[in-house]
């Protein structure tokens, strides 16, 4: 899955250049410009480090929180094959979370700290997961649209200047493309199914379309940090470029499915060779981001209660490991 707002820098990430730092920064930027990878032990500007920690941990959190809306349908998947594929997909997302937490750890933050930030509500995750999965078709729509948007965003990150993040993303992208195909396949089965199934598919598209295209983040005129992230080659394309690319690819797919994208302004523009689309309701995006989406509370509550309910298990594992160490010492 994916996190939006990948270019958001925190207030603490003030770019300070003085004395020696200037030379180090010049060398750093030289490497970036030459398309060399920055590795964990290399010098890097603090703002670059903080931006990556924020971005990678948001991305990891999104994978973990993203397990919840889809996990909601595992027990009700309509066939055993669909059930197995969905479990595998949700499990992949947990795996992605794990690689990403590891990639973030190379920057000097512990997974435990990142988890605390998530549970405290101070870390962001992709707001798309604050929407509910109300029918089986939502599982198709998530794979098709949400994973489709994720791929669009993530493929450029495979060439990100930070080595561990870029490498994690190569593996993640391969799995995401399988996720996207399974989502489309679910939609196709519904679109070719009974009138009730077709209605279910259309309803899911109606609810997921706008949140999906919001996943690319604010429009370029509103996105303050795109320029810096592009200079650092953390970001390769602007939000609007990626959004346009997604819509250009997805609109014909909807047509193939016989479904109507819920945007009366959506139309092919011969002059630009792109689809035109209607106004995005950014107030909705901002509201969900601020915690007022349909499921923000439920998602965080689910993560918190898993963490709390698992505390005694983690304590037991630590206590057992300690006993084992003590026994080994006595035996030695």
């Amino acid at each position: 899955m994916y996190t939006q707002g990948l270019d958001s820098l925190g207030k603490e990430c003030v770019h300070t250049a003085a004395g020696d730092t200037a030379a180090l920064e010049a060398r750093f930027q030289g490497k970036v410009d030459a398309d060399e990878k920055i590795e964990p032990k290399d010098w890097m500007p603090d703002a670059y480090r903080q931006t990556l920690i924020r971005q990678i941990s948001q991305h990891a959190h999104s994978e973990i929180v993203g397990m919840l809306p889809e996990g909601n349908w595992i027990s009700r998947a309509p066939t055993l094959r669909r059930k197995a594929v969905l479990i595998a997909k949700v499990q992949d997302e947990g795996g992605h979370g794990m690689y990403l937490y590891s990639a973030a750890e190379t920057l000097g933050i512990e997974r435990e700290q990142m988890l605390e930030q998530l549970l405290a509500g101070t870390a962001k995750y992709s707001s798309i997961f604050n929407y509910p999965t109300l029918t089986w078709a939502d599982i198709g729509a998530i794979g098709w649209l949400v994973d489709g948007a994720a791929i669009m965003n993530q493929i450029p990150i495979c060439r990100c200047s930070y080595g561990p993040y870029a490498r994690a993303m190569v593996r993640i992208c391969k799995e995401e493309s399988f996720h996207q195909r399974q989502g489309f396949e679910i939609m196709l089965a519904l679109a070719r199914g009974t009138p009730e199934q077709q209605a279910m598919a259309q309803d899911a598209l109606n609810r997921w379309w706008w949140p999906s295209i919001m996943m690319f983040g604010p429009s370029d005129t509103e996105s303050r940090h795109t320029a810096q992230s592009m200079r650092w080659k953390i970001k390769r394309f602007t939000n609007d470029e990626l959004r346009q690319k997604f819509i250009d690819i997805t609109a014909p797919q909807a047509q193939f499915l016989g479904l109507q994208i819920p945007d009366p302004d959506l139309a092919w523009d011969e002059s630009t060779q792109h689809f035109k689309f209607g106004q995005i309701d950014w107030s909705e995006f901002q509201a969900v981001l601020k915690g007022h989406g349909p499921c923000n509370r439920e998602r965080l509550e689910a993560r918190r209660s898993a963490h709390e309910n698992g505390r005694w298990v983690r304590e037991a594992a630590a206590a057992h490991a300690e006993k084992q160490r003590a026994r080994a010492q006595r035996a030695a």
């Binding site: 973990i64 919840l68 949700v90 794990m98 983690r314």
Partner: peptide
């Protein structure tokens, strides 16, 4: 799935 004591 999604509710275990730890990611592993």
């Amino acid at each position: 799935v999604g509710h275990s004591p730890a990611l592993e």
